[in-house]
Design a protein around this nucleic acid. Structure first.
Length: 271
DNA sequence: CACGATACCTGTAAGC
DNA sequence: TGCTTACAGGTATCGT
């Protein structure tokens, strides 16, 4: 479930093997994911030393000493496998460090991506330049949301999935954040009150923070052979809980479809 | 421009 | 046991 917390967990897990490491061998096992792998990826990675890792929204960043950054996105089904025993049909990019650690980017649906970007130009890279603020950063405020959503008639749920409004939220954490803030996901974004937006900002931060902690707590498991980065279990209040009692009031959690995707919410708690 | 619908691709689970 | 259908964590693009 690669949303922001899973990407953050993945990056932290990868850092244990990659930060400061030299990449000795690279295997690119197909030409493309969502997009073609960048020209020269294998040559750029081979022999490079990783100078640091990071994250922007749902993108993972692997900075190289050669002035470039490998930017990866996990799409819907991507994950990194640690010390895979055998490579399967969905292991598309395999890195091996000087220390002998092997890491594989596995993505069955291939909605993910890998790009090479000049490290100095990351902020102006078009995909990043168009993004809204990080939900865990200082720039996400109720005032930002108020102005970004002013006059918008689309449902608040859909607007929060728009990476130009806030960068990094996905279906799970939008549902959970709206539940915690007591906001009806169907409400027109421009009509959500300032008070509700003021509840939403900390709600989003809390949900994401707890998810990252839950991921972090399982990180030690990833040190095992064939561990996998990108998935961890977390208890949700509404996500995928159709018909089950609301954790706050006991009313059945409802499911609806917005923009072709499922939304779960409590009609009694969320107004 | 805002907004909704559709496409991309594979795996899994449920229904018949 | 098959076969078919619906749906899944995201984003890009195409109509209206």
């Amino acid at each position: 479930m690669p949303e922001l917390p899973e990407v953050e967990t993945t990056v932290r897990g990868l850092a244990r093997y990659l930060d400061g490491a030299r990449i000795a061998r690279v295997q690119q096992r197909r030409a493309d994911l969502r997009r073609p792998f960048p020209d020269g990826l294998v040559q750029v990675l081979t022999g490079a030393t990783v100078s640091g890792l990071g994250r922007r929204a749902k993108y993972g960043l692997v900075h190289l000493d050669r002035g470039q950054t490998m930017v990866f996105h996990l799409g819907m089904s991507g994950r990194w496998r640690i010390e895979p025993e055998d490579l399967g049909a969905h292991d598309h990019l395999v890195l091996e460090t000087d220390a002998g650690h092997r890491l594989s980017l596995c993505d069955p649906r291939r909605f993910g991506s890998v790009d090479l970007v000049d490290s100095a130009e990351l902020e102006t890279w078009p995909r990043f330049a168009a993004m809204g603020p990080e939900p865990l950063g200082e720039a996400l405020t109720a005032a930002h949301l108020k102005s970004a959503l002013a006059g918008r008639s689309a449902a608040i749920k859909l607007m929060l999935l728009d990476q130009r409004i806030v960068a990094g939220l996905g279906n799970i954490y939008v549902c959970e954040g709206l539940f915690r803030a007591g906001i009806d996901p169907r409400k027109a974004a421009g009509r959500v009150s300032a008070a509700a937006l003021a509840r939403l900002v900390p709600a989003i931060r809390e949900v994401l923070g707890e998810a990252i902690e839950a991921g972090g707590s399982t990180l030690r498991d990833y040190a095992q052979p064939d561990g996998q980065l990108g998935y961890f279990s977390k208890q949700f209040d509404v996500y995928d809980r159709t018909g089950q009692p609301c954790s706050a009031c006991g009313a059945p959690v409802q499911r609806l479809v917005q923009g072709g995707r499922s939304t779960w919410f409590c009609a009694r708690c969320q107004k």
